[in-house]
Structures are given as structure tokens and as C-alpha cells.
Amino acid sequence: TFYNFIMGFQNDNTPFGILAEHVSEDKAFPRLEERHQVIRAYVMSNYTDHQLIETTNRAISLYMANL
């Protein structure tokens, strides 16, 4: 899942690491979701930090390219 992918960046001092920290603390994050459209919609609806949203979009693109 995307959640498992992004958790691989925990403790990294990178934008993906920052995203992983936010996702791990977000109890409502769709952890079992595999459809990138649902993940993107969730982030757009629940996150207000523009940098975090952009990082999510980049992470989703990388995740999709590696499926």
C-alpha cells in the first residue's frame, strides 16, 4: 500500500520523511487504501500545508512508477 511505501521514509530528513511522520500520526489516514485517487483526495481534503500536499503528489507518482 501507499502507507507502507511512505513509512519506509520514516526518520529520513527529507520531504518524504516529513510526510511519513505526518501520515504515521494521522489516525484517520487510509492505511489500507491502494487507489492513489482516494489517497490524493484524502490529503487534499485533510491537509492544509501546501508543501505536504506537493510532497504527497510526488510520493504517489514515485509509488505508482514502482508498482
Rank of each mutant, 00 (worst) to 15 (best):
T55C: 06
N46I: 06
V23A: 04
G8E: 10
N46T: 12
D49Q: 06
T48D: 11
A41H: 11
F5N: 00
V23S: 01
S61N: 11
N46L: 05
R35W: 05
F9W: 06
I60Q: 01
S45D: 13
Y47L: 03
L52P: 01
N4V: 09
M7K: 05
I39W: 03
F5W: 12
V43P: 00
Q37L: 09
F9M: 05
D12I: 08
F29A: 01
P15H: 09
N13E: 10
F5H: 00
D12T: 14
T14F: 03
Y63A: 02
M7H: 01
S24D: 07
T14Y: 03
L32Y: 14
T14S: 14
I39E: 00
S24C: 09
R58L: 14
Q10R: 15
L32S: 12
H36V: 15
L32G: 12
T1C: 06
Y42L: 02
Y3K: 00
A59C: 04
H36A: 15
L62Q: 07
V43F: 07
N66W: 15
D12H: 12
N46Y: 08
N66G: 13
N57P: 02
E54I: 10
A65S: 11
I60R: 00
A41D: 14
A28W: 12
F2A: 00
T55E: 05
H22N: 05
T56K: 02
E25S: 14
D12F: 10
F16A: 01
A65R: 10
N46M: 10
H36K: 04
R35T: 06
F9V: 02
A20D: 06
Y3E: 00
A20F: 06
E33F: 04
D49E: 07
P15N: 07
M7W: 03
T56R: 02
I6C: 02
L19S: 01
Q37N: 12
M64I: 14
V43H: 02
D26C: 04
P15L: 11
P30K: 02
A28L: 13
A59M: 08
P30S: 03
H50W: 13
Y3F: 12
D49I: 06
V23G: 03
Q10V: 14
L52N: 02
I53Q: 08
Y47W: 14
F16P: 02
I60V: 06
Y63T: 01
N4C: 13
V38P: 04
D49T: 06
M64T: 09
F9D: 00
L67Y: 07
E33P: 03
H36I: 15
H22T: 10
M7T: 05
Q51V: 13
R35C: 13
S45I: 09
Q10A: 13
N13C: 10
L52S: 02
R40W: 15
G17P: 02
N66T: 14
V43G: 01
G17N: 04
F2S: 02
T48I: 09
V43Y: 03
M64C: 11
A41P: 00
T48C: 07
P30M: 04
E33R: 03
A65D: 10
P15R: 08
L19Q: 02
T55V: 10
R58Y: 09
F9K: 02
H22K: 14
I39S: 00
